[in-house]
Design a protein around this nucleic acid. Structure first.
Length: 666
DNA sequence: GAGCACTGC
């Protein structure tokens, strides 16, 4: 006989949760058990089920509470095991019957035959079932009875107090079907008249507290004097899957994540009225420091963290305590089109390798689960084994210059693990040649080429710095380079757009965003690097601190390269020429008859627009240079500066003579 | 009037 808790024996180990009276087990309570007939394979199987660890606990709670709410998911074995535990503990002695209701007929039949099989009895004898038009039970013999909740309702017409039953387990109560809800309401009434009756409500996590407060009649009951021992009126909640364990959800980007967080929070609050058991948090790189700290804060007791994240949690960041992962199957990936020279961030399906990595984020502390929002067939047949190597979807300018600096001359013949598209390679060589970083033999030029290779920045930025030093504005270009290296110096809050735009106007320069950045930087220094000042002006203080750090590093590098720090003292034309020297390849001209502010790139006639976050939005100067493109429904230029087209031929004569720019009327 | 996966140097 397997060992189980008996009334009067020592209380099993339970952990009391002060927030809501939920009882959880700290450790599995079962000790090794043996069968009188030795181990049978069915015994072993039964003991392997998650619910088995809670066997003693369940029996203890059912003994002592009028209502026990069991939280657990499909597969925990609660439906097949709990009725057997009750039977083993003697709840079916003296002609009493253990009932277990199901919302569906098929489930009733399937579970009944399974339990009969496990108990080694003929279906319809000790274990039986009733569905409409089919009664497979034997009065006086049947101890465990499975039935649909509708059938149990019918039985109440003949026996309103359901006197034959000692325990009624209402399974799948979270589905809240019509019949289940009627049944729950009636069972609550019966409980008042039948203190000997025990209810077990099996429910999903989300409904457990609702169920608990529904069945909690402890406030209304008066203790009768000298009365026999009655079970506690407040329901016990027991989870057969340890619910402590956070959830990590992989989505693609900030937008999706913010709306998902909002939806989940609202949903959780609707379900729980006053207090939600979920703490829903976003996670992406652009998050402020304070919000990031929340991710790592320990989960409050009785709560569960839901972290909705980008790919940042796939590899870069490890979160302890994640037990469940939800994988959307998508991520944002960079793609580069060498023809248009535009890099795009595109939502694309992930690879099997990524899917496995994501799944592996669950269960670092104990076994976990991953829910993939795509079919197994898709995973097996269609999902690529590995992603496309970054080499084949990137702009290669930095890559080429690095190899050159390492003395690899024959780049086109280089033996790559994954060869990049030749067009991308040609593009990169062309740009580096125009920048004066490579010579006709594709060797690094001296000193510019070698110097640029030494600066740990995009070669176009590095070239801007080098030119700035020649033009006498090294102070300014270093500041601009530092600011362009952080994601954004403006705070990322929605809903205060108007105030933010007004704040931006205080710094806005007609020449464009780069000059505006210098104004912000100046204001920040004048404020004494004040966080208050940043707050007032919608400037991201942490970003500005980062700018200061990067700027210090760049100053050290400049010193090493022999660049003297010199300011152009507000001569913005000099600064803009330096920007042009690095970014001439990103020059655009306003389409003459365009009403909508449409520009075309000089290099490949791509249709582009000034991003609404730019100070030049709606200003639409005839000639501009952009720092980068973001592609959404349109190609938007971010960080834009107005230029004089003559600077282009000045900065890169070969490049623009080929493009026929000198024939264009200014 | 729109919205920035990630990393490294």
């Amino acid at each position: 006989m397997t060992q189980f808790w008996k009334p009067g024996s020592e209380k099993p180990r339970l952990v009391d949760d002060e927030e809501g009276g939920i009882l959880f087990f700290s450790t599995p309570t079962s000790s090794s058990s043996s069968s009188r007939f030795g181990y049978s394979s069915i015994d072993k199987q039964r003991q392997g089920l998650p619910v088995y660890k809670y066997r003693n606990g369940i029996l203890y709670l059912v003994e002592n509470h009028a209502t026990t709410i069991i939280v657990g998911e499909t597969g925990s074995g609660k439906t097949t095991q709990i009725p057997q535990y009750l039977n083993e503990a003697g709840w079916a002695e003296g002609g009493r019957v253990i009932a277990c209701t199901q919302p569906r007929r098929l489930a009733v039949q399937a579970v009944a035959s399974r339990v009969a099989e496990e108990m080694g009895v003929k279906l319809g004898e000790e274990v039986g079932y009733i569905i409409r038009f089919e009664d497979l039970t034997k009065p006086g013999v049947t101890k465990i009875k499975f039935l649909t909740d509708g059938v149990l309702l019918r039985e109440m017409m003949d026996d309103p107090l359901l006197t034959n039953y000692s325990v009624i387990m209402v399974d799948e109560a979270h589905e809240r079907s019509l019949a289940t809800d009627i049944l729950l309401g009636l069972l609550k009434k019966i409980q008042r008249r039948r203190p000997d009756l025990r209810l077990i409500i099996s429910s999903a996590t989300i409904e457990a507290r609702t169920m608990s407060s529904f069945f909690d009649t402890s406030g209304r009951m008066h203790k009768k004097a000298g009365d026999e021992i009655e079970p506690k009126k407040e329901p016990a909640i027991l989870s057969v899957e340890e619910p402590i364990g956070d959830i990590l959800v992989f989505l693609t980007g900030q937008d999706d994540i913010d709306s998902a967080v909002q939806l989940l929070t609202e949903e959780a609050q609707n379900l729980k009225k006053n207090s939600s058991g979920l703490v829903v948090l976003p996670l992406y790189s652009g998050l402020s420091r304070g919000d990031q700290d929340l991710i790592f804060a320990p989960t409050p007791r009785g709560k569960r963290k839901v972290i909705v994240s980008t790919n940042i949690a796939e590899t870069s960041l490890t979160l302890e305590g994640i037990v469940y992962v939800v994988d959307s199957g998508f991520s944002k990936q960079r793609f580069y089109n060498p023809i248009s020279d535009i890099e795009n961030l595109v939502v694309a399906p992930i690879s099997k390798a990524s899917a496995r990595q994501r799944a592996g984020r669950a269960g670092r502390v104990r076994s976990g689960k991953c829910y993939r929002l795509y079919t197994e067939e898709y995973f097996v047949k269609e999902m690529p084994a590995e992603g496309i190597p970054e080499m084949q979807r990137s702009n290669l300018v930095s890559c080429v210059i690095q190899l050159k600096a390492l003395g690899i001359d024959n780049i086109l013949g280089f033996d790559w693990p994954a060869s990049p598209p030749p067009e991308a390679m040609v593009r990169a060589l062309e740009v580096l040649y125009s920048l004066g970083i490579l010579d006709e033999d594709a060797k690094l030029t001296s000193p510019i080429g070698f110097q640029v290779a030494e600066i740990p920045l995009d070669p176009m930025i590095s070239k801007m710095i080098m030119s700035g030093s020649l033009l006498g504005c090294s102070e300014e270009v270093i500041t601009v380079a530092a600011i362009l290296s952080v994601q954004s110096i403006w705070v990322a809050v929605r809903g205060v757009q108007k105030e933010m735009d007004e704040a931006k106007l205080r710094f806005a320069a007609a020449e464009g965003d780069h000059v505006t950045f210098l104004n912000v930087y100046k204001g920040f220094l004048q404020s004494g690097k004040s966080s208050q000042w940043c707050y007032k002006n919608f400037i991201n203080y942490h970003a500005m601190k980062k700018v200061l750090e990067i700027r210090e590093q760049l100053k050290r590098i400049a010193h090493r390269l022999g660049i003297a720090l010199k300011s152009c003292e507000g001569d913005t034309q000099v600064l803009r020429k330096a920007v042009t020297a690095g970014f001439f390849a990103n020059a655009c001209r306003l389409e003459a008859f365009s009403q909508a502010g449409m520009y075309k790139t000089i290099r490949s006639s791509q249709e582009v627009y000034i991003h609404p976050s730019s100070v030049l939005f709606r200003v639409n100067p005839k000639w501009v240079i952009f720092h980068s493109i973001v592609s959404t429904d349109r190609q938007y230029m971010r960080n834009v500066i107005a230029i004089d087209p003559s600077w282009l031929t000045e900065a890169a004569p070969q490049f623009y003579q080929q493009q026929g720019l000198n024939k264009v009327a200014y």
